[in-house]
Deep mutational scan, measured.
Amino acid sequence: KRPMNAFIVWSRDQRRKMALENPRMRNSEISKQLGYQWKMLTEAEKWPFFQEAQKLQAMHREKYPNYK
């Protein structure tokens, strides 16, 4: 399994919040909304999620050194 990228790190919590706030919203619509919201974030707002993704990638490399 691949390490999470910055968008996935960010969207994990956002998806839960959105699903709780909009229980009738379909998963496909939630995904569209999340994509739009991510695009609207500034680079500074995205930065912590890129840092977290880099940490996860480093841990993944250490744990699975022969992963493609």
Rank of each mutant, 00 (worst) to 15 (best):
K1F: 08
K1W: 08
K1H: 13
K1T: 10
K1E: 11
R2G: 12
R2P: 12
R2K: 12
R2C: 12
R2T: 08
R2I: 10
P3D: 15
P3A: 10
P3H: 13
P3C: 12
P3N: 14
P3W: 07
P3K: 07
M4F: 02
M4W: 05
M4K: 04
M4Y: 04
M4G: 10
M4L: 07
N5C: 06
N5A: 08
N5P: 08
N5Y: 04
N5L: 10
N5W: 04
A6G: 08
A6F: 02
A6I: 00
A6E: 04
A6N: 13
A6Y: 06
A6T: 06
A6V: 03
F7I: 01
F7K: 01
F7H: 02
F7R: 02
F7G: 09
I8G: 14
I8Q: 12
I8A: 14
I8N: 13
I8P: 02
I8E: 15
I8W: 10
V9E: 07
V9N: 00
V9L: 15
V9G: 06
W10Y: 07
W10V: 02
W10T: 09
W10N: 14
W10K: 04
S11T: 03
S11P: 02
S11H: 01
S11E: 09
D13Y: 08
D13V: 10
D13R: 00
D13F: 02
D13W: 06
D13G: 09
Q14T: 04
Q14L: 07
Q14M: 15
Q14V: 09
Q14Y: 04
Q14G: 00
R15E: 11
R15P: 03
R15L: 04
R15H: 13
R15T: 05
K17R: 07
K17V: 08
K17L: 05
M18T: 08
M18R: 01
M18L: 14
M18S: 04
M18E: 00
A19W: 00
A19I: 11
A19T: 11
A19G: 03
A19Q: 13
A19M: 11
A19K: 14
A19E: 13
L20C: 14
L20A: 14
L20V: 10
L20S: 10
L20E: 15
L20W: 05
L20I: 14
L20T: 12
L20P: 06
E21H: 02
E21Q: 03
E21G: 02
E21A: 09
E21Y: 07
E21W: 01
E21I: 11
E21R: 03
N22G: 04
N22H: 15
N22P: 01
N22Q: 06
N22F: 04
N22V: 05
P23V: 05
P23G: 07
P23C: 07
P23R: 02
P23A: 04
P23S: 00
R24E: 13
R24V: 07
R24F: 05
R24P: 09
R24W: 09
M25I: 07
M25W: 09
M25R: 02
M25A: 08
M25Q: 06
M25G: 01
M25L: 09
M25Y: 06
R26D: 09
R26F: 05
R26E: 13
R26W: 04
R26P: 14
R26L: 13
N27T: 09
N27K: 07
N27P: 12
S28A: 09
S28R: 06
S28M: 07
S28W: 07
S28F: 05
S28V: 05
E29I: 12
E29L: 00
I30W: 02
I30M: 09
I30E: 02
I30Y: 03
I30S: 05
S31F: 13
S31L: 14
S31G: 05
S31W: 13
S31Q: 12
S31Y: 13
K32D: 08
K32R: 12
K32T: 05
Q33K: 13
Q33E: 12
Q33R: 09
L34H: 00
L34K: 00
L34I: 08
L34T: 00
L34G: 05
G35D: 14
G35R: 10
G35K: 10
G35F: 09
G35M: 09
G35H: 13
G35L: 12
Y36P: 10
Y36L: 14
Y36H: 14
Y36N: 10
Y36W: 03
Y36T: 09
Y36G: 09
Y36K: 14
Q37Y: 05
Q37R: 10
Q37S: 04
Q37F: 11
Q37C: 08
Q37W: 03
W38N: 15
W38H: 01
W38P: 04
W38R: 06
W38S: 03
K39H: 05
M40H: 10
L41M: 15
L41G: 05
L41H: 03
L41D: 02
L41Q: 03
L41I: 00
L41P: 01
L41A: 01
L41W: 00
L41C: 01
T42Y: 04
T42S: 12
T42L: 03
T42K: 04
T42W: 02
T42D: 15
T42F: 01
T42I: 00
T42M: 05
T42V: 04
A44T: 12
A44N: 08
A44H: 00
A44W: 02
A44Y: 04
E45G: 02
E45Y: 10
E45P: 00
K46V: 04
K46L: 01
K46S: 01
K46I: 00
K46R: 07
W47A: 15
W47C: 06
W47L: 14
W47H: 12
P48S: 03
P48N: 06
P48G: 05
P48F: 15
P48E: 10
F49R: 04
F49Q: 01
F49Y: 15
F49P: 00
F49M: 00
F49T: 05
F50R: 12
F50D: 11
F50S: 03
F50H: 15
F50Q: 12
Q51M: 09
Q51G: 04
Q51V: 12
E52I: 07
E52L: 04
E52K: 07
E52Y: 03
E52Q: 11
E52R: 08
E52H: 08
A53K: 15
A53Q: 09
A53R: 00
A53V: 02
A53C: 04
Q54V: 10
Q54P: 00
Q54F: 12
Q54T: 06
Q54K: 01
Q54D: 11
Q54H: 06
Q54E: 11
K55H: 08
K55Q: 07
K55T: 12
K55V: 05
K55W: 01
K55I: 07
K55A: 10
K55L: 06
K55S: 06
K55D: 10
K55F: 04
K55C: 11
L56C: 06
L56D: 04
Q57E: 14
Q57F: 11
Q57P: 02
Q57D: 15
Q57S: 09
Q57T: 12
Q57G: 14
A58L: 08
A58E: 13
A58Q: 07
A58R: 10
A58T: 05
A58S: 10
A58C: 12
M59C: 08
M59N: 08
M59A: 11
M59E: 14
M59K: 11
M59G: 10
M59H: 13
M59W: 11
H60D: 13
H60Q: 15
H60I: 01
H60W: 05
H60R: 11
R61E: 15
R61V: 10
R61L: 13
R61I: 05
R61P: 13
R61H: 11
R61G: 14
R61Q: 10
R61M: 10
E62Q: 09
E62S: 09
E62H: 03
E62V: 08
E62P: 10
E62G: 10
E62R: 06
K63Q: 14
K63F: 12
K63H: 13
K63A: 12
K63W: 06
Y64I: 14
Y64W: 06
Y64E: 15
Y64H: 15
Y64V: 13
Y64N: 14
P65E: 14
P65F: 08
P65Y: 13
P65Q: 12
P65W: 07
N66V: 11
N66D: 15
N66P: 12
N66R: 13
N66C: 12
N66T: 06
N66S: 14
N66L: 09
N66G: 12
N66E: 15
N66W: 07
Y67C: 08
Y67Q: 14
Y67L: 12
K68T: 13
K68A: 09
K68R: 04
K68G: 15
